[in-house]
């Protein structure tokens, strides 16, 4: 089973990387970009039947730093 873990900075946590990307998009002439937040996508290939609880624990114990980041688990059913 393929699983995508989306890790993003919590709202309110300053994102210098996102800010730099935002700035660069504007420098390239793209107007109307209101905000940019940069995160990570971690692609997992796990055994079928891996429990939601295990996936949750993977995120909490390693993949996301819960002080500054949130995570979202997306299971790709047909991948």
């Amino acid at each position: 089973m393929k699983v995508h873990i989306h890790v993003s900075l919590k709202p309110g946590v300053l994102d210098p990387q996102g800010r730099a990307i935002h700035h660069e998009l504007e420098a390239l002439g793209f107007s109307g970009v209101n905000d940019v937040r940069a995160g990570k996508l971690i692609e997992l290939d796990v055994a079928d039947g891996t429990s939601d609880d295990d996936l949750d624990q993977m995120c909490r114990k390693l993949l996301a730093n819960m002080v500054i980041e949130n995570y979202r688990i997306e299971k790709l059913e047909n991948a």
Partner: peptide
């Protein structure tokens, strides 16, 4: 937590 420097 220690994040990327604000200046990048």
């Amino acid at each position: 937590a220690l994040m990327r420097n604000a200046s990048q």
